[in-house]
Design a protein around this nucleic acid. Structure first.
Lengths: 162, 162
DNA sequence: GTATCTGCAAACCCTTTGCAATAAG
DNA sequence: CTTATTGCAAAGGGTTTGCAGATAC
């Protein structure tokens, strides 16, 4: 419940990152391919998402973009589904009553540990999970599209504070 | 988005189930232990939850209880956290924008397969998951309290309909 | 009798949407 | 020019809350 604006963590001055440029370019291509227009707002949002590390919600994104050339929440809400379709963003439902998102890095998959006391999120990955996903899906006749694994409990810090 | 009232599935005339009586009794004990009062509303809600199979949301619970001696949504919302604390109920966040719940049966753990086309939920269990949960938590210094594993994709039926 | 609990309705919060103005192609 | 997109503000939908009356103990 603590940090509101600080939870939007940027890579430091990485605006010239060649990777960023490439990803933005492919986002533009995606927009075109869907018949969507390339607007300043969509680019701002995509850039913010691409430069972000960690999880964030709409409010944090909104506050982050607030500067001189802000973007309305309506536009953020309207752009998020596009970003998700484009594969740049994923919704991660972190049980706090509303949606949280995170950037998708390539195909690498990770899961979350959530501290029930302080709310912080930690990440980990288990290589077996995608395999397990496939196995179970197959067993049940599913064509699987994804999975989510989350663990909650007390983080090492909050554990001590008790 | 189909069945609204039908998704609340009861065990057939199981109101005399000795297990039910026992569980209700332990819920009453729980209420007392917390200094809460035993009210008709709380008993109705607990009974409905105990007799239910599968997942449901507040609206379904509300509609189910609607009969002669209904319970207001406010009371349902106020009782749910108590039921969760008592260990009878668990929140299962099934990505439909709002909360869904299910009864907790003993300590047995199961996970969900969700069809992204028809929305139906299937269950499965993987004995290794609780072990994995412990291992990962330990690695990260967590004292784990629970986990959730969910897979989504196309169920066998929707797969054919494509 | 007193404090808790209930139902109602209003308040809240996140998200979506209608609409007129703006900007992309 | 034409049509998609934007921002605003209002509407939505689930959940929470203040309050007066009802009820458990």
């Amino acid at each position: 419940m603590a940090e509101k604006s600080s939870s939007f963590n940027f890579k430091k001055n990485d605006k010239n990152d060649p990777d960023l440029a490439k990803e933005l370019e492919s986002f533009r291509a995606f927009l075109k391919s869907r018949g969507h227009r390339i607007t300043r707002e969509r680019e701002s949002i995509a850039e913010a998402v691409l430069l972000n590390r960690g999880h964030f919600d709409v409010d944090e994104l909104f506050l982050h973009l607030k500067g001189r050339e802000g973007v309305s929440k309506a536009s953020i809400y309207r752009t998020i589904p596009i970003l998700i379709e484009s594969g740049l963003l994923a919704a991660v439902y972190l049980e706090n009553g509303h949606m949280h998102y995170e950037r998708v890095y390539g195909r690498e998959h990770h899961s979350h540990l959530r501290c029930t006391a302080c709310g912080r999120i930690f990440e980990f990955s288990v290589p077996q999970l995608p395999v397990l996903e496939q196995e179970i899906a197959e067993q049940e006749g599913f064509k699987s599209e994804g999975h989510k694994f989350e663990i909650w409990g007390l983080c090492s810090k909050c554990r001590d504070d008790e």
